[in-house]
Design a protein around this nucleic acid. Sequence first.
DNA 1: CGCCAGATTGAGGACGCTCAATTCTGGTGG
DNA 2: CCACCAGAATTGAGCGTCCTCAATCTGGCG
Lengths: 261, 261
Amino acid sequence: MMSINHDPVTFGYREAMTEGHEALALWLRRLEMRSPLTDFDRETVMGLPGQVRRYASSRDVVRLGERTHSSCLVVDGIVARFGQTSEGHRQLTALYIPGDMADLHSAVLPVVSAPLQSTVSATIYTVSHDILRRAAERSPTLARAFWRDCVADAQIASEWLLNVGRRGALAKLAHLLCELSCRYGAIGLPNREFSLNLTQTHIGESLGLTGVHVNRMMRALRDRGLVETEGTVLRILDWHGLVGVGDFDPGYLHLRREAEQ
Amino acid sequence: MMSINHDPVTFGYREAMTEGHEALALWLRRLEMRSPLTDFDRETVMGLPGQVRRYASSRDVVRLGERTHSSCLVVDGIVARFGQTSEGHRQLTALYIPGDMADLHSAVLPVVSAPLQSTVSATIYTVSHDILRRAAERSPTLARAFWRDCVADAQIASEWLLNVGRRGALAKLAHLLCELSCRYGAIGLPNREFSLNLTQTHIGESLGLTGVHVNRMMRALRDRGLVETEGTVLRILDWHGLVGVGDFDPGYLHLRREAEQ
DNA sequence: CGCCAGATTGAGGACGCTCAATTCTGGTGG
DNA sequence: CCACCAGAATTGAGCGTCCTCAATCTGGCG
């Protein structure tokens, strides 16, 4: 057993404030990208109290059917939303990276219809629904920013639907890699070389493919000189080539200049 | 040429009030299903001014890249949101039936990243973004209801992702038919026998399948005695059978007792 | 050194696609 | 009233992509 427990580890006030602060700042940046916020709103967001929890790989963050009382802000790692068929086939429906409020939507629809799990490992900062809702009630500009954040999330799901439904396996994979690169870039992380924090099985579950086939397609991308991999680290060698193969247009991410590469 | 023009037909105040009223009432009913609204909110919604437009089959309702200034409430027919790859393959990402505000999200994110089109034919009632936003600013309960409506929409998209990504063609089709039946039932329309208002190509574009293959799967459902078709009309003969084949659980629709059949 | 999860590769099969022909339907004009 | 037409539904044959099952390889860790 490693130093990380099965159950999430909750940290004290000191750590919560330090780790949560960074993630809140990232989230705030996105919130005000298109919705104008007041100073009061900014203070409200940055002062959002919460708890830090760490998860090892493939741990439930939010279980199906649960009634939740807080939303999960990703601090580190990746958290995945997923659905599954009665035969147990899983489909990841969203991937959340640091700075994403993974289930802000649960503040207004607390019955969980799609559970949340850590992929490889994750640190999250949980914020109470009550506090989020009260903040939204007090400030119309903040309410609109929250609403808009959920809408942006939905637009990513729409694009995934197009990706999963209509593109071939190679394009699907390239498209997902492009999306992750853009999203990491948007929060100021390196986006030409970064750790995927996903197993090939996870990638397959995101794309409606088998892990085995993801492996083959990853090899195909490598053979074409578009990417390199070293363990879980991905290095993009030919961005424009990858964009071309993935038929990728970052418009749906609603990022700003961060999206242009 | 038939009696319906290429361009949408806009109607005068009298018609707008009559036709819009019904759709607004349906929408209001859903809005207050889980979010408590005040009398003032109800009056606000029912008094929302707008314009009625009629569309023949496969007409653009909202074009890609456009900056919109109003949202579309479906009065009659079906409106589809879709995306397409650079090769022109289309994927429908949402179907909107009467009582659905098809692009409420555009009130907070007006840059259209996914266009809207009528399927077979449609009547819509357009409501100005300014008015919607002002209503949300004035009433926190209404703001929350709007937010929640967008979240519900996103959850349907998540379920579609699971459907498109992980189920076989027969189950995909059965699942979609179940969803439509439940949604029609929820707005008080007959849900054991109803017009699909979709061509088999549209259905294929919703499911990530070919129209041809949809036809074969429809036949398979008929052969199993689950449904009957007469032109565009679908009759469900064995609801539980269809639910079984489609692996359908209406939870994600967030309907009430209307969902139980 | 052994163990395990994940990555990698191979062989064969199934599901859904492509292309194409035919039938059916409702609407149109003679 | 009937011939005609366009769009949709239907059916068939062949094929390709991606899946299934399985074996092997790799790196991290006890």
